[in-house]
Amino acid sequence: MTGKTFDLDKKELINQSFNQMDTHLQGAQYNQAQKLALTCRILFDNGHDSGLAGQITARGEKTGTYLTQRLGLGFDEICVSNLLLVNEDLEVLQGDGMANPANRFHSWLYRARADVQCIIHTHALHTAALSMLEIPLEISHMDNCVLYDDVAFLPKWPGVPVGNEEGELIAQAIGTKRAILLAHHGLLVACPSIEEACLLAIAFERAAKMQLLALAAGEIKPINSGLGREAHDWILRSQRSAVGFAYYARRSLKNNNFDCLK
């Protein structure tokens, strides 16, 4: 007999969908280093290329350590074999080469946020352009609600972020949120998983592009706050992040011939 769900309210239907996600949605099986290398390639494919600018890190097994890319390589060149394991002082524990000195603010943020397992910082084009206006990122479309009420704003540019002052400033400005727009700089996302961080970085750049397009046409209208939070929680599920990441990974691997996994 059909029509069994037509008398259910929205909350019941959402919970029913969440239960189905828990049962049916599964991500791909990659280890941490493979996920980090894939994230570099995925973000390169999705408009986050800015030469050698930007850093992507993930916590290591030992406290005070994290994986990151080698300075001198672009996101499109990162693979498991050229990742570095560094400590909070950016001393290389495993791998060859050096980390980006700007990774120092990652160390500060990891200290401040025990919930964070992955940090992504890029100078994606539309985000960088928006940052020049010294205005916050506006979330006013359903597709971008994964970031609704979850993006901080740092209106002050502290200069090249290689000092401890910049680390303290950024860690304080982001607070408990998952993302922040850095004026005259770029974006940063800090999440409890690599998969989630990757998807939020993609969503951030898309939201910035949409904001610039909308501003060129007129005034951006806000969405209902309750519905925005509802959409945020609807999209931001670990199972959705896992399968979303797996989708982007499949796309990237078609272009990279699986070399980034080695």
Rank of each mutant, 00 (worst) to 15 (best):
G226L: 07
G97K: 07
A58D: 03
T5N: 08
L227F: 13
S241D: 13
D150A: 14
T5I: 10
W157Q: 04
Y66W: 15
A124K: 02
S81T: 12
K62F: 01
F75P: 00
L73G: 01
C118A: 08
R250A: 13
A216D: 11
C198H: 11
K4V: 13
A217L: 14
A124R: 01
F245A: 05
G226T: 06
T2K: 14
L43E: 08
P161W: 01
M98I: 14
A152T: 01
N255F: 06
G72R: 03
N31W: 03
L36Y: 08
I170K: 02
K35A: 00
A246M: 02
L236D: 14
A231W: 10
I202R: 11
F105G: 01
Q239L: 03
I180P: 09
V160L: 13
N82I: 07
I202E: 03
D150Y: 01
P158L: 11
Q16C: 06
Q69N: 15
Q26I: 11
H48S: 04
C198R: 08
G163Y: 04
L187R: 04
A231S: 11
G54V: 05
F258G: 00
L71N: 08
F44Q: 10
K10A: 13
R70M: 08
A33T: 12
R113M: 13
A246T: 10
A114V: 08
A203P: 03
F6H: 09
L67F: 12
L212M: 12
N257A: 14
F204E: 02
L109C: 10
A37P: 06
N256M: 00
I180C: 05
A171M: 11
A249N: 12
F44W: 15
V86E: 05
I78H: 07
R206F: 00
E168Y: 06
I220Y: 02
M142F: 14
V92Q: 04
D7N: 14
R251V: 12
Q211R: 09
Q16T: 11
V243E: 01
Q239V: 11
K10P: 00
V146R: 15
N103D: 10
T39M: 12
L199M: 15
N224P: 08
N103P: 02
P155F: 08
E196C: 07
L147K: 09
C198W: 08
K4T: 13
I139D: 06
R206Y: 01
K35C: 05
I119P: 02
A201V: 02
M98G: 01
I135D: 04
E195M: 01
K221L: 10
S107G: 15
E230W: 14
L212G: 05
G159C: 04
I139G: 07
R113T: 10
I56G: 00
A33F: 03
I194K: 08
A99P: 09
L52K: 08
G167A: 05
D89L: 06
Q94E: 15
H126F: 14
G159E: 06
D150R: 05
N87P: 12
S81G: 07
V116P: 06
L52Y: 14
A197M: 09
T127M: 01
A242I: 00
R113F: 09
R237N: 12
E205K: 10
H141T: 11
Q94L: 06
G3A: 02
L147Q: 03
G186C: 11
